[in-house]
Design a protein around this nucleic acid. Structure first.
Lengths: 112, 112
DNA sequence: TACCGTTATACCTCAGTAAATATAACGACT
DNA sequence: AGTCGTTATATTTACTGAGGTATAACGGTA
């Protein structure tokens, strides 16, 4: 069996995690569903965990990543801001580049 | 505060972890001390955990990463093989390259 | 043969994290 | 006013992973 190289990347602010793989997939689920509770259900994650993740992201990002509304006909909801979308896009682009870079590195290392 | 990008890389074999940051630092401590028990103490890690990590590495690597002896005047010991040293070296080189690559990527992304 | 420091392994305990549950507030609509 | 689905939060429960302790085996040396 061949050696494979894997990686996880994340963005930190002031020594604390801003954005990692889990948070990005949560943000994308929110973008798709328009709701934090629906997003957490779709990922098999508890609402509480999802809420605390989003809270952490919002409190550390330089600009808000999402806007929430409470009450109303549909009960409320959560929308990802344009800034949030730009963060998601940057994370995924860098992540993909990192994988490609590492695949090249491991093949050049030629470990037997 | 500025956004910083972090990463962890690891090598997998057959879907299971062969080598990550913790295992590499353990192997280096063994190399320095010549003993698994001394290495675990120097890292503040329990012997049991250190042993299970080394056991996992040895069972998955294509060649043995260390040789152990039991008994004798000094009680025994563990030596890192030449193959093990080459794995450590490859991991650290790729890891360093990855950090440099990511630092470049995040500065190019220019996130506000 | 007794001693010593090491490898190797089983078992039990405990804490820190994750999950489940409960509850309040909100606001558009009927 | 009552309903509904959502956000927001506290409290309690469950569980996994890590650590501690104990013990056997090993083989040079005195």
């Amino acid at each position: 069996m061949e050696y494979k190289i894997k990686s996880r990347i994340w963005i930190e602010v002031d020594g604390e995690i801003l954005l990692g793989e889990g948070r990005v997939s949560l943000l994308k689920a929110i973008e798709k569903t328009g709701s934090l509770s629906k997003a957490s259900k779709s990922l098999g994650m508890s609402y509480k965990k999802a809420w605390s993740l989003i809270d952490a992201v919002n409190s550390r990002a330089k600009s808000p990543v999402c806007n929430t509304t409470i009450g109303g006909t549909k009960g409320g909801g959560t929308q990802i801001t344009a800034y949030g979308k730009s963060l998601i896009e940057a994370y995924e682009r860098i992540n993909k580049n990192c994988w490609e870079f590492l695949d090249k590195q491991i093949s050049e290392a030629d470990l037997k």
